Amino acid sequence: MTETPNPNIVDADSLTGEMHPIRRVVVALGSNLGERLSSLQGAVDALADTPDFFVTGVSPVYETEPVDSPEEAKPYLNAVVLADTTLPAARLMERALAIEDAYERERSEVRNAPRTLDVDLIVVGDRRSNEDFLRLPHPRAHQRAFVLQPWHDLEPDAVFPERGPIADLLADVDGSGVRRREDLALEVE
């Protein structure tokens, strides 16, 4: 089932009082422009302030070499946030985009262009979506050490839908450009 945003549709639960199921969410954060750590912390705070979104874990911070980016791209700071939510995936995607916009993320035609903040939904429960607006599970995350390593730190036994254990996926990717920053940390208030 694909979830797509439509402002003309009212969620049934708002009329009937029914609850959405709680879903486990994996969100990847990245920044390689401006105050990188401040942007990541701002994203964690904004996610934690989202109604019906309950942050359950924040990974260590990693500094990573850019992947498939323009030559002038600088290293990223990356982290992963785990949460439980009852929010629909489309609403989570809208929230992720709003958080990026709040940190002046500039969208470009250049693939993987440098950015002040990237907030990517990796997994939202068992939801699947292949819409331009929302692809779930994230189509390339299983190939990215900068997502897999921080996620593995939080959930070593996690399984990437349709791909297998993240520990196995991590063993199959090049992690040489991913370095844990012991001097940096993100907090949930």
Rank of each mutant, 00 (worst) to 15 (best):
P21G: 03
V55H: 01
F54E: 15
R140M: 05
T85P: 10
D126A: 09
N8K: 09
F160N: 03
K74G: 03
Q149R: 14
E106P: 02
T16R: 10
G125H: 01
G175Q: 01
S69Q: 00
S69A: 15
D52G: 13
L136M: 10
P7R: 11
T50L: 14
H20Q: 11
A141M: 01
L40V: 06
R179S: 09
T56K: 08
D132N: 12
V173C: 05
G42H: 07
A89G: 11
I122Q: 14
T86F: 04
D172N: 13
A48Q: 12
D126N: 10
R95L: 03
I9K: 12
A98T: 02
R140T: 07
E104R: 14
L186H: 11
A12D: 13
A90V: 06
P114V: 14
P156Y: 12
D172W: 00
I22A: 13
F160V: 04
N8P: 01
V58I: 11
T50N: 02
D84M: 08
L40S: 12
E63Y: 05
D68H: 09
K74T: 05
A89N: 10
H20L: 12
P66T: 03
G30H: 00
D120V: 09
A12S: 10
N112V: 04
V26N: 05
R95D: 04
T85L: 05
V61R: 00
A102L: 14
F53Q: 00
D132G: 09
A185H: 07
N8D: 15
V10A: 15
E187S: 13
N6M: 07
L40P: 05
P7A: 09
T56W: 05
V10W: 10
E71W: 00
L154E: 13
L169V: 01
A83L: 08
V188W: 02
R163K: 09
Q41H: 03
P21K: 08
A43M: 05
D153Y: 14
S129T: 02
E63A: 11
L97Y: 05
A43E: 02
P161G: 01
A43R: 06
R180N: 11
L170S: 01
I22W: 10
L40D: 07
A79H: 06
V26F: 09
I122H: 13
D45K: 02
G164A: 05
R128F: 07
P75C: 01
D157H: 08
N32S: 03
Q143I: 00
D118F: 07
A141G: 07
P51D: 12
S38A: 00
R163V: 00
E155D: 15
T85C: 04
A12N: 14
P88V: 12
E65D: 11
T116N: 09
V26M: 10
L92I: 14
A158P: 15
T64N: 05
D45P: 01
V67K: 05
Y103F: 15
V173F: 01
F54C: 15
R111Y: 08
A73P: 06
R95P: 04
E18I: 10
P137L: 08
A98Y: 01
E72Y: 04
R24T: 05
P70C: 04
V25W: 04
H138N: 12
E187Y: 06
P165A: 15
S38W: 03
M19V: 07
L37W: 03
E65V: 08
W151M: 09
L33Q: 09
A89W: 04
V55D: 06
D11S: 14
N112Q: 07
